[in-house]
């Protein structure tokens, strides 16, 4: 029994990401200085698109003022951005429904719109409408300086 499990394990484990893939998934640093207010950039980390949005005052205000009880996946805006860096939203641009890439600055909520099955996210990347079950994921990241972050 143990022998069989031990034999099967390598046969299954080989399917997981290999060493090179894991190494390539190391943290990356992104300079935020060139991103003007209201703009956003898309960088790739571990093959996933990451949206970094420089939110406008209006977007921040909208994100903070919405009643949590009205959200399908309640989460305050403060839990989705780093304290003191309210203007920066960093989210993984993969729809939590079936993995398409939502389009920034589209939809009814000043956030993201997924063209595949119509999910809409707000300016905090939270799901507001459509079949997606959860908010856009926030990748692990930290501010190195005020204008530089490390993702991963």
């Amino acid at each position: 029994m143990v022998g069989a499990a031990a034999t099967v394990w390598p046969l299954v484990a080989q399917m997981n990401p290999d060493a090179a893939t894991i190494a390539a998934g190391a943290p990356i640093q992104v300079d935020l200085a060139p991103i003007a207010e209201g703009q956003d950039i898309k960088v790739f980390w571990r093959g996933k698109p990451i949206y970094i949005s420089h939110r406008t005052k209006k977007q921040i205000q909208e994100a903070q003022s919405v009643a949590l009880s009205s959200l399908p996946d309640p989460q305050p805006d403060s839990a989705r951005v780093k304290a003191g860096h309210d203007q920066w939203l960093v989210v993984i641009g993969i729809c939590t429904h079936l993995g398409c890439i939502p389009i920034a600055h589209e939809g009814n909520y000043d956030g993201f719109f997924c063209p595949c099955h119509g999910s809409q996210y707000d300016s905090s990347g939270r799901i507001r409408q459509g079949p997606a079950p959860a908010n856009l994921a926030v990748p692990p990241y930290a501010f190195l300086t005020d204008t530089k972050i490390q993702i991963g």
Partner: peptide, 9 residues
């Protein structure tokens, strides 16, 4: 992740 063998297709 196991199916993909990576972090995305």
């Amino acid at each position: 992740t196991l199916l993909w063998g990576g972090y995305s297709v």
